[in-house]
């Protein structure tokens, strides 16, 4: 193998990103993943265990991990922290009843040492529902301003209509790329 091929291979390898999708159950994590991947979303079942998808996007290889959010599964989240470049935290913006729970889980997660440095994208999902909190309100309720340990951003979206998913993912990729692939 020539030197250039080796270099190219290395680069290809480096263009891989590991992205973890977490959030409370029913937030829309699996729907976001499948919608982003252009798959059918009507048949999605509640996630038992996890889904993994490898997607090509803008020349990056994204390894996306979607882990079930039920209480009995949350203890397994830890299994997936290693080598995470980006964290997508999905919120059901209309489920005000559980925002408190959502905020607590998020901040516990961010304390996790093995996630240190991972870029955080908060998706304010289900914006198609009347009565959904705006991303500004959520920023407040979830106390995002207090996060100093991670680069973060909140982006509104609807996985059902597909609105704004791309701009969220693009922000995430740009932030990770700027951090990791500095030699490009």
């Amino acid at each position: 193998m020539g030197f250039l091929t080796v270099l190219r291979k290395m680069k290809q390898k480096e263009k891989e990103m590991r992205i973890l999708i977490l959030g409370l159950d029913n937030a829309g994590k699996t729907t976001i993943l499948k919608r982003f991947n252009g798959e059918e979303i009507d048949t999605i079942s509640p996630t038992l265990g996890f889904n993994i998808k490898t997607l090509e996007h803008r020349g990056y290889k994204l390894n996306m991990w979607d882990v079930g959010g039920q209480k009995s599964l949350r203890s397994y989240w830890r299994n997936y922290f290693e080598c995470t470049d980006g964290l997508i935290w999905v919120v059901d913006s209309a489920d005000k009843r559980r925002l408190e729970d959502c905020r607590a889980e998020l901040h516990v997660l961010l304390k996790e040492e093995r996630l240190a440095g991972a870029t955080l994208l908060v998706f304010a999902n289900k914006q198609d529902l009347p009565g959904a909190c705006s991303s500004e309100e959520l920023k407040d309720i979830l106390e995002l301003e207090k996060i100093k340990t991670h680069h973060w951003q909140i982006v509104w979206c609807s996985a059902v209509t597909g609105q704004n998913l791309l701009s969220g993912i693009d922000w995430l990729i740009n932030d990770i790329a700027a951090r990791i692939f500095t030699l490009d």
């Binding site: 440095g117 340990t149 951090r179």
Partner: peptide, 14 residues
Amino acid sequence: TMKSPPKHEDIKLN
């Protein structure tokens, strides 16, 4: 070293 994410200490924003 390039690929590993910055450690806690490196990202003391503010």
